[in-house]
Structure formats: structure tokens, C-alpha cells
Amino acid sequence: MVLVEIVFNVTQVLEMVIFVYIASMVMFFVRILRGPTIFDRVIAVDALSCDLAVFMALIALYTGNPHIAFPMIFIALWAYVLDLYVSKYLEFRDIGE
């Protein structure tokens, strides 16, 4: 029995995956233009931040340089901040209450 064996490099797989991420970035852009309410636009910004955190790890793996992937921690922590500001504007009387 002969089994077909497909061998990929790590760099080839990463190149294919990065084009998928670029396509998803364009889809978030369409959602931020077209959303009927204001909460759809906020969700598009949050999803782009989470997407960017994984993209940073992929680029660090692709170029073999582990020291540049440090901002990944902070952008994954601060992805939810715009939700807080919009809901605080619409619900409360004063910032800092």
C-alpha cells in the first residue's frame, strides 16, 4: 500500500494563513461601514484588536525573531476598552461617577 505523503514547510503554511488574516481584516472594514447600530461598529474594532494579537505571534514565528513579539500582551489586554467608554457615555451622568 502506498500512501500519499504531502510535506509542507512551516514557512509555506504561514504564508497561506497570513492571506486569510488579510481577508478577515477587509471583512471587519465592511462591517464597520455598514452596521445599522452603534454596537456593531464597536464589535468590529474589538475583533480587529484580537486578530492583531494573534497576527503578531505569527509574524514573530515567520521571521524567527522572538524579541519583537512583546506588544502582543498589551494589545490583548486592552481590546475591550472602547466598549467601556461608549457604554459609560450612553448610560451614566458623569465620567468618573
Binding site: 461598529r41 474594532v45 492583531l52 524579541h67 494589545i75
Partner: peptide, 24 residues
């Protein structure tokens, strides 16, 4: 209020450009 959401989106795209140009 929608204009400030656009400004935050532009900021995330600029962060991506700075990262691809290797300036951490």
C-alpha cells in the same frame, strides 16, 4: 460618537503598519 470609533479603528491599523516595519 461614530467618528471616535472610526479614529480607534485607524489607530489599530497604524499599529499593524508599525509592527510590520519592525519597530517594537
Amino acid at each position: 460618537l461614530i467618528a471616535t470609533i472610526y479614529i480607534a479603528f485607524i489607530g489599530v491599523l497604524y499599529t499593524l503598519i508599525y509592527y510590520i516595519l519592525m519597530a517594537p
